[in-house]
Design a protein around this nucleic acid. Structure first.
Length: 930
DNA sequence: GACATCACG
DNA sequence: GACGTACGTGATGTCC
């Protein structure tokens, strides 16, 4: 078959795949011999995902993966500094390079490279040939150097983001169409490849110049006509360097190749070769997945001899057929006996829903050793799940719930038996509903969180894939989705047993794997003092809930609706037509296209940005954006708060029960969901009134206590800033003090505006400040913002040291730590480009935010005991605030007790050089209490 | 389901 | 020297 019209060539940028794979995965090694294998694993996964996605009319007829070969190319002969500032290839990546070639061949995909040429040149040559033959070509890469090739049958595809780049996409990136990309690159240069370009000229300016003069040659010829003197001189002085740069970025479309496109025809992989390679690499999950898809038996991957200090995990295969259904007392007794034999058991509950307040217990699964697990169904319904009306009759083969619980409760509450769960808070709440207190327990989710926060999430699917190389049975096929979804009690028993028992089995295996590592990772203390003890505390808070007055919300909702309708009329009037005010896309078109307002900026999706910042700027000149801002505020308040909150009021309790995720935020903070009660409005007057709907029960009062400036105090301690510490000791207004120090204004002459600036800088420091960010926040020129920052560092030199030290620590270890030993991993700190900047700022922020999170966790854990003699309940946590409900008359006693716990929460583990101060308030509702 | 927007600390 | 930039979250509506 000769390549031509109707054919489609795919060219995969192999190096891009490799580096993405390398940075996306932790440094995995092959179990049997420790060979670094992470990049190969990621590479194979990407290749497999790519092949899977190749269906439909657009599928390629020809494909090749193109690699770079050697580091010396013809460009180095032109310019010896080309790519000279590239970091050397990481030690553990080098041995993986040949393996990625083998992997490509194992997938039976053509694999091409050529000494002295970059992959980009080969890609260029093939793309041009494909175009000349009248075929289509897709380059799978997001490398901007390839963008010059786009157009006329050639396009690019970012496989990770599934983002196609055509001529317009290139224009969005470079400000010129593909045929002029080289000109722009020649001017702008490229720091990554060390292409010099013209000093002081970036892509924006380059595109401007090229568009004005047509092309680079014309520009250089007529450089004397450029108006800006500096720019003119730069171009005149550097003309040779610019021409050299153009030769460097220009891809060679005539690379001599010893093959043709016809040799790249798509071929099916040979199962034996592919599976053999994957097995040799010891990719258990991928081997099995691909074997299943091909309908082949997965080759056996030999168990590696465990390294002496590696935890021993039984590598027993998962077999859903081996799980037992427990149907009677005799069988259950055998399980209980087995549990007492070993002293621990993995427990998992199945219920009718995810909301522990309303969910009903459907069954319980137990596991005592890997592969040995059972499911005790309790209220599964009889009849097929496709029965139109369902059946209310219970299925055969189930114990009565009360009989089963009577036998299980002593074990669940027995201090001698350790109960192991994955996200035990959920199961503990289900059991608490029926009066059972599960203790003691371990939680595999929290063990993973203590060790790996920042690396990945800690759901069972993730942990099982990562640490057991096993994909759990998915729940979706059992329950369905959308309207036709059923609850677990409708799942046929045979399927239910396999699914439920497997969860307990996985949990037990994870525990065996993760528990011993707590110690070696030195996070046992974190797990034992900050994670596990918080579970029962949060469970109790969530079960308590907070009383919310539906009438108040409903009245506010109506008021908002009326105001919104009025605003909509005004908005349509100004716009001259009706449109959906809630659609940023339509709003952008109205503002910038139809009304012709200047300064519309398009984001990466090509839509105009219409965020608050932009609308606020426009609002000084125009009516419409001002009205839209008002409308948006009301819309937010109505939909997210006054309306949605009502649906969360529990019918039985009349209260709202949030759920806190303990292992969600990487820094150690909690997160509140369903509903989120950590973002109830307060900053605007209108929004603040929503807190009036959060009320105390009759005869009770709400009490709120919050840490004052906890993060700045922690910063003062960690970075050891005497001036800050002294100011906190004196009880000064910290932002005013900072302002006075920085701007040489005496405290008694402080103005609100100067203080506001200092406050922004104080917060900026906590976030890993940048001149750009501060400038945007304060809406001042960047140079001025940078001046403030310089001044700040000068006055408080410890801050810069802290920032530099923290970054260096993160680079060296891949994580940072809080004062209490919590680890927050920052894997991206090693990456190049803007990602590293993000990671660096996150690394600077994490010890501060994380230590504050640890402090309030410690307070919460001690709180139940400290207030046990008071008629008070802890209801909510909002990062630096705790909300309580207390019987009238006991408010002050509660404040005294709770404040004492909070202010001394770091004792005795960490002796803070700055005292922690807690403000308190009380009232009939949350607005008053705060 | 991605994206934009906006609520909180 | 330019790049793209404040930290951490969750919920909602639009649009594909």
């Amino acid at each position: 078959m000769t390549f031509g019209k109707g054919h489609h060539l795919h060219l995969i940028d192999g190096s891009a795949f490799i580096f993405r794979a390398y940075h996306a995965l932790p440094p995995l090694t092959r179990k049997s011999d420790g060979l670094p294998i992470g990049a190969v694993a990621g590479f194979c996964n990407m290749l497999h995902r790519y092949v899977e996605g190749n269906t439909g009319p657009d599928a390629p007829t020809h494909v090749a993966v193109i690699f770079d070969k050697g580091s010396h190319t013809f460009r180095n002969d032109m310019y010896d500094l080309y790519k000279a500032n590239r970091d050397a290839m990481p030690e553990d990546l080098r041995p993986q390079m040949p393996l990625t070639r083998s992997a490509t061949e194992a997938f039976n995909i053509a694999c091409k490279e050529k000494e002295g040429f970059e992959a980009d040149d080969i890609i260029a040559t093939l793309a041009v040939q494909a175009r000349a033959a009248g075929g289509q070509c897709t380059i799978i890469s997001s490398d901007k150097d390839l963008m010059q090739l786009v157009g006329d049958g050639v396009e690019m595809l970012d496989a990770m983001k599934n983002n196609r780049i055509d001529r317009e996409g290139v224009f969005a990136k470079f400000g010129v169409y593909p045929e002029r990309v080289v000109d722009v690159q020649a001017l702008a240069g490229d720091s990554v490849d060390n292409v010099p370009g013209a000093p002081g000229i970036g892509i924006k300016t380059a595109a401007l110049l090229i568009n004005e003069y047509g092309d680079l040659d014309a520009l250089l010829e007529r450089a004397g006509e450029i108006k800006q003197p500096k720019r003119r001189q730069t171009l005149i002085d550097n003309a040779d360097q610019i021409r050299l740069s153009r030769r460097l970025v220009q891809l060679d479309e005539n690379t001599p190749l010893d093959f043709t496109i016809d040799d790249l025809e798509v071929r099916d992989p040979d199962p034996e070769t592919l599976l053999g390679f994957l097995a040799e690499m010891e990719f258990r999950t991928l081997t099995k997945r691909i074997a299943d898809q091909m309908g082949k038996e997965a080759p056996v991957i030999a168990d590696a001899p465990a390294a002496p200090d590696a935890p021993v995990v039984a590598d027993l295969p998962f077999d859903p057929e081996k799980y037992e259904q427990v149907s009677d007392a005799a069988a259950l007794q055998r399980w209980i006996d087995a549990i007492y034999e070993v002293g621990y058991v993995a427990v998992d509950t199945e219920t009718t829903g995810l909301n522990e307040m309303t969910a009903e217990l459907v069954g319980i699964s137990l596991a005592t050793q890997p592969g040995t697990a059972c499911y005790i169904p309790l209220i599964h319904k009889a009849g097929a799940s496709d029965d139109l009306f369902g059946s209310e009759d219970l299925a055969e083969g189930q114990m009565k719930t009360e009989d089963a619980l009577r036998m299980l409760t002593p074990m669940l509450e027995d201090p001698a038996i350790l109960k192991i769960g994955q996200n035990m808070k959920y199961d503990a709440k289900i059991f608490a509903q029926i009066g059972i207190t599960v203790a003691p327990f371990d939680d595999t989710m929290l063990m993973s969180y203590a060790q790996h926060a920042g690396l990945h999430n800690h759901g069972m699917d993730t942990l099982s894939e990562r640490y057991l190389s096993h994909t759990p049975i998915p729940i979706k096929p059992l329950l369905g989705s959308g309207k036709s979804a059923i609850t677990f009690d409708k799942v046929p028993l045979d399927k239910a047993v396999q699914y439920a028992a497997e969860d307990a089995d996985i949990t037990l295996r994870l525990w065996q794997f993760l528990k011993p590592q707590l110690h070696s990772a030195q996070v046992t203390k974190v797990y034992e003092t900050l994670e596990r003890p918080l579970v029962p505390v949060l469970a109790a808070m969530e079960r308590s809930g907070v009383k919310v007055d539906r009438d108040t919300l409903s009245r506010m909702s109506n008021a908002f609706a009326q105001k919104m309708a009025g605003l909509e009329d005004e908005i349509y009037e100004i716009a001259g037509r009706k449109f959906n005010v809630g659609s940023p896309k339509q709003l952008g078109e109205i503002l910038f296209d139809e009304m012709g307002i200047e300064g519309g900026k398009k984001g990466k999706t090509g839509a105009y940005a219409t965020g608050v910042d932009i609308l606020e700027d426009l609002a000084t000149e125009h009516e419409l954006p001002a009205r839209v801002l008002d409308w948006r505020q009301l819309s937010k308040l109505k939909s997210t708060y006054t309306d949605a909150l009502q649906t969360h009021i529990n019918a039985d309790t009349g209260r709202v029960h949030t759920s806190y995720s303990i292992a969600g935020a990487s820094t150690g903070r909690l997160a509140s969901t369903d509903p989120n009660l950590q973002n109830i409005p307060i900053r605007s007057e209108e929004g603040r009134r929503i807190r009036e709907a959060f009320i105390a029960e009759e005869g009770k009062t709400l009490v709120a206590l919050d840490y004052s400036q906890i993060e700045l105090r922690i910063l003062a301690h960690i970075a050891d800033i005497p001036a800050l510490k002294e100011a906190f000791e004196r009880g000064d207004d910290i932002h005013a003090m900072t302002a006075s120090e920085m701007f040489d204004v005496p405290m008694d002459e402080m103005t609100p505006d100067i203080r506001r600036r200092a406050k922004a800088i104080n917060f900026g420091v906590i976030y890993g400040i940048s001149g750009f960010g501060l400038a945007r926040n304060l809406r001042i020129p960047r140079s001025e913002a940078q001046g403030f920052i310089d001044r700040y560092f000068e006055r408080f030199p410890g801050i810069r040291t802290y920032m530099d030290d923290t970054k260096a620590f993160a680079k060296e270890h891949g994580f940072v730590q809080t004062l209490f030993g919590r680890k927050i991993h920052t894997p991206e700190i090693a990456s190049k480009g803007p990602r590293a900047g993000f990671a660096a700022r996150a690394a600077i922020n994490a010890p501060i935010q994380g230590t504050a999170a640890d402090v309030i966790r410690r307070a919460m854990i001690r709180m139940p005991d400290a207030i046990k003699d008071l008629p008070a309940t802890m209801l909510l946590q909002v990062h630096d605030e705790l909300l309580f409900e207390v019987e009238k008359g006991h408010e002050d006693a509660l404040i005294d007790a709770a404040r004492d716990v909070m202010e001394n929460a770091s004792d005795p583990v960490v002796k803070l050089a700055v005292k922690l101060t807690v403000d308190a308030g009380k009232g009939a509702n949350w607005a008053e209490a705060h």
